[in-house]
Design a protein around this nucleic acid. Structure first.
Length: 464
RNA sequence: GGUCCCUUCGUCUAUCGGUUAGGACACAUGGUUUUCAUCCAUGAAAGAGGGGUUCGAUUCCCCUAGGGACCGCCA
């Protein structure tokens, strides 16, 4: 058995969206599961639309979510000579031919087909012409001689058998009038040269596969296995596209979604293994297979992304969580000051219980960093005379204790509740407001203990 | 319009001819609680429709309907 080799081959003509990332993930997981290799190929042969920034964005996205690839990026535009060479080989073998139709002529035919409501297919006008007929003044395109008769069968690893009449596949262009190769040529040549064994891609490529297989066969190359995965749809059931609002990984990371959570979500979108929902990295490699991929498109559901993220926040170890938080703050908020790092890390055990996202942790941890908060008007109203009095009594009480922890604080607060004839809220609410600037947030004891005696004293003394 | 593909709770899905059709998210209700949450319990919620095959179909086949993808000298 050959070593499994897969690739992800995006074109840098727009930002990579979450659907593309899932395709990359499936390829990566498949190769890892088989002990194989995974490559990244940048398909940048469209010079006009390819942008360096998109290439960088693709690379960074894969890096962020933890998909690594062999040997750096394979840049397709650097291999154009190989593609042209193959085109000429096909020409020599008589398996491709020069077509002298002008673009206008082709456009005209398409238009007419549309008017008559009949399917357009190139009429193979130059397929069997001899060289003596060639006009001198036009640069020809090279077309592949597609099979005209019979059927082709694709044994797709996800979709099963797909049958198609050969005459529905036209003589497609492999070399443009300017001599540059087109997608179907470049992709097959590269996949062959890179030794790809399995091509896993969106099912929008199904028809291309029938074209590409013909190129393989014409060149006597071994045909790889194909697996066409259903596309991800938007909530209104349309294919995720580079234009209109298709979410990128940046969109998710900037609201505090963690890469491992998104990876898990993406894995389970259109793939399943029994009833299992949570897959850590090793498990996802261990269990991933092509059989588990469903045949129907699936819709992106943001609430599941949140809940997956929440699960990871609550269940990964706090060292890792803190690393994610640190990175998140640096890239999307502001760097956590050195002086606050330890405090926040030590507070994660309660901060994480209130968080769905890293942003939630960030927000709820602000009181640890910043004591110059503004108390909201409606909160200030709650700080009436009795409340202020309770706070003063509390200050006196904590000055009497040397150890400052839950055990020593509980009796103090209990006493205050009794002596002021109030309930926990009557004491807790004013304290929380004065210490954090908000009615909402962590538990009172968590706030007190994480700030420490001195800071609590300092903040409370300013009130009144 | 042509070709190809798809169809189980709102969403992601389990089931590989026999199940009270299961789980997760979301939702609703109740409980715990120290605000906001968490957590726990409970509930509502699905086989597109019609034919076959079969002792028995969500599962296999056909038709219909609905949805999607592709139909570039883009990738």
């Amino acid at each position: 058995m050959k070593t499994v080799a897969t690739r992800f081959a995006p074109s840098p003509t727009g930002p990579l969206h979450i659907g593309g990332v899932r395709t990359a993930l499936f390829n990566w997981l498949y190769s890892k599961n088989k002990g194989g290799k995974f490559y990244l190929r940048i398909e940048d042969t469209d010079k006009e639309r390819s942008k360096e920034e998109f290439k960088d964005q693709i690379i960074n996205s894969l890096k962020w979510i933890g998909i690594n690839y062999e040997d750096g990026e394979y840049i397709q535009s650097k291999k154009i000579d190989d593609h042209i060479y193959v085109a000429n080989e096909l020409l020599k073998k008589g398996l491709a031919y020069k077509c002298y139709c002008s673009s206008d002529e082709i456009e005209e035919q398409k238009k007419r087909a549309k008017q008559k409501k009949i399917p357009y297919i190139y009429n193979r006008k130059w397929r069997d012409k001899s060289e003596t007929d060639y006009p001198k003044e036009i640069n020809p395109v090279i077309r592949f001689k597609s099979k005209i008769e019979g059927k082709s069968i694709l044994k797709d690893l996800v979709q099963g058998k797909i049958e198609i009449e050969n005459n529905t596949i036209e003589d497609f262009v492999i070399l443009r009038a300017d001599g540059s190769p087109t997608y179907n040529l470049s992709a097959s040549v590269d996949d062959h040269l890179m030794g790809m064994t399995h091509i896993i891609r969106g099912d929008d490529h199904k028809i291309n596969t029938f074209k590409q297989i013909q190129i393989y066969e014409a060149m006597n190359w071994e045909v790889p296995c194909f697996a066409h995965i259903p596309l991800i749809h938007t909530i209104d059931g349309k294919k995720l596209s580079k234009r209109d609002n298709a979410s990128t990984l940046d969109d998710f990371s900037s609201i505090g979604i963690m890469p491992n959570a998104l990876r898990n979500y993406l894995l389970r979108l259109g793939w399943s293994y029994k009833d299992k929902e949570i897959f850590d990295l090793n498990e996802s490699i261990k269990y991933f297979n092509l059989e588990g991929i469903g045949k129907s498109p699936s819709k992106l559901d943001i609430s599941r992304i949140y809940s997956m993220n929440e699960y990871y926040i609550k269940n990964i170890n706090e060292d890792d969580l803190f690393k994610f938080l640190k990175t998140y703050c640096e890239t999307s908020k502001e760097k956590i000051p050195d002086s606050a790092q330890k405090k926040i890390k030590n507070s994660l055990h309660f901060l994480k219980n209130k968080a769905k996202t890293l942003e939630d942790i960030y927000k709820n941890s602000q009181f640890l960093i910043d004591d110059k908060f503004q108390i909201k008007k409606e909160d200030k109203k709650l700080l009436d005379k009795t409340a202020i009095n309770i706070i003063k009594l509390f200050i006196d009480d904590i000055n009497k204790i040397s150890d400052f922890n839950r055990k020593t604080l509980e009796p103090i607060i209990d006493n205050l509740i009794k002596s002021n004839n109030t309930n926990f809220k009557g004491v807790g609410q004013p304290l929380r407001i004065c210490l954090t600037g908000s009615r909402f947030g962590p538990g009172i004891y968590d706030i007190l203990c994480s700030l420490g005696k001195e800071e609590v004293y300092k903040r409370l003394s300013q009130i009144g």
